[in-house]
Design a protein around this nucleic acid. Structure first.
Lengths: 100, 100
DNA sequence: TTTACATATCGCAAATTATAGATATATTTG
DNA sequence: CAAATATATCTATAATTTGCGATATGTAAA
């Protein structure tokens, strides 16, 4: 991982809501209600659930999640009209290795 | 580590210069000239050397380093008129464990 | 093919952060 | 004690980020 990428990830982790989302996504089943259409959390959690739990506006959370995906922290998968977000453990590992 | 502390550390790592300082401090002898009075890097690197290498003003770097110490990322030790900064590996470990 | 729903993007005002110069404080040295 | 040096703090302005409402886009259902 290079300095620029690591700093972009640092920016995502410089806000309490975003840091909290990273924590919540460690245990989707514990932190979110079950998905009604998809019966699993294999691809993570849908944007709406994250937004409701965070308590910020839809546009704000959408922007957060988009940026977190752009820097590699999250992986986004679309199923129908829903987007699901999960942690990208490989990138997280590269980041923690970089700063350690 | 709690969410608030982790986010404070995230803020320190959200700026390229500060991230770079963390990297430089991994290998003081490789990245900085030897100290003329102190003959070692046991307590890290003096503020002046970090400031010169970063190329920002003395006040800016001093503020950076103070904040990095406050959130636990760095340990500051004074020897005479110089302050030396080194990485706080224990806190860094707690941070990487938190986000992993 | 409308309509409804889920998510993304745009544009803006408010809050926060970045950064520097001036100044203060601490420490050593003459 | 006075001067010199290293670092810290204060104040101010520029730049960035936050977070929202409005609007656009994508997708499925009626």
């Amino acid at each position: 991982m290079d300095l620029r990428t690591a700093t972009e990830i640092g920016k995502c982790l410089s806000n309490q809501t975003r840091m909290q989302i990273m924590e919540w996504l460690k245990e989707p089943a514990k932190n979110f209600p079950p998905h009604e259409t998809l019966k699993h959390f294999n691809d993570g959690v849908c944007v709406t659930y994250i937004q409701e739990k965070a308590g910020l506006s839809q546009s704000t959370i959408s922007t957060y999640l988009t940026n977190m995906e752009k820097c590699g922290l999250l992986i986004s998968t679309r199923h129908g009209k829903w987007s699901y977000l999960k942690r990208n453990e490989e990138v997280i590992k590269r980041f923690t290795d970089f700063i350690s």
